[in-house]
């Protein structure tokens, strides 16, 4: 596929259960992601982020509406066609990296290329090029348990990219990484996505990903809402809606927001120790 495709979500609804126990996890959502665009979806727990991501990935069918990747309408597809769509058009990145523990870095990536039917030799060649590009040339023969978290996630990125998908989906990709590696890894993802014009949809709580996103969407109760202004609790790192912050404090002319009084007390006891952490 030479022309990169636009990903479009049209009036998508997803319900779970029926009758009195019915839950509407996603309500009438529309979204378009253009090639090369990085979209970050944020929102509280239970707001429907994972449900939306699963539908985008062809893992879950919408109750209503359409999801298209270029010409392919996922909602019209047969169950047996979906694996191929996922394999060729979508790259997945998971919170737990989810590498195959028995395979080396190279084989983890090459296996996914080989699933498309190309030869083992060619798969390995493709995987090697990609891994070297992601700075893992020295780690090709390592098993996952010998890799650091950041390295694992880079292998996962290589795996997601190896079949040149139109769209990359990432669910909480930095949740198991420290802030430095999380930011580095996401920057790398953005770079490759931009270079090769792949659409990226990331679901995350992580405020720091905002800086690499072209667009940030706020999902709440299954609907996109206006982005509330958010701040980061300097003590625990949680995102805080500044209008409903449980605790605040002023320090050297700046206002800080906290998730609870506990964090505020901790902060006030030694403000500088928390403010330096992020600028090291």
């Amino acid at each position: 596929m030479n022309m990169q495709s636009v990903v479009s979500v049209e009036k998508v609804v997803r319900r779970f259960g029926s009758g009195t126990t019915e839950v509407v996890a996603v309500k009438d959502i529309s979204l378009e992601v253009v090639p090369g665009e990085v979209v970050l979806i944020m929102g509280p727990s239970g707001s429907g982020k994972t449900t939306l991501l699963s539908m985008l990935g062809g893992l879950l069918r919408p109750s209503e509406g359409r999801i298209q990747i270029g010409e392919d309408d996922l909602t019209l597809m047969d169950e047996s066609q979906l694996p191929n769509i996922r394999l060729q058009h979508i790259g997945f990145i998971f919170q737990d990296f989810n590498l195959l523990s028995a395979l080396t870095t190279l084989d983890n990536v090459a296996l996914v290329a080989q699933l498309t039917g190309i030869s083992r030799k060619e798969s390995r060649k493709k995987a090697k090029v990609l891994l070297e590009q992601l700075g893992l040339g020295q780690r090709l023969d390592f098993l996952p348990h010998k890799l650091s978290g950041g390295e694992k996630q880079r292998v996962a990125i290589a795996r997601a990219l190896v079949n040149k998908p139109d769209m990359i989906l990432a669910d909480e990709p930095t949740a198991n990484l420290d802030s430095h590696h999380g930011r580095e890894t996401m920057r790398l993802l953005r770079e490759v996505a931009k270079q090769e014009k792949r659409s990226v949809v990331i679901v995350s709580h992580d405020e720091r990903i905002k800086e690499i996103a072209d667009r940030v969407l706020w999902l709440e109760d299954g609907e996109f809402k206006d982005m509330v202004e958010m701040a980061v609790d300097p003590v625990c790192g949680m995102s805080i809606d500044i209008l409903h912050a449980p605790a605040t404090a002023d320090f050297e002319g700046t206002k800080y927001y906290f998730c609870a009084n506990g964090c505020r007390h901790e902060f006030l006891a030694a403000p500088n120790s928390f403010l330096q952490v992020d600028h090291e």
Partner: peptide, 16 residues
């Protein structure tokens, strides 16, 4: 189990 689940999500077919 979870590794096979990941492979399935990525696009591996049952036959694989």
């Amino acid at each position: 189990r979870s590794e096979y689940g990941v492979l399935k999500a990525i696009g591996a077919k049952n036959i694989h």
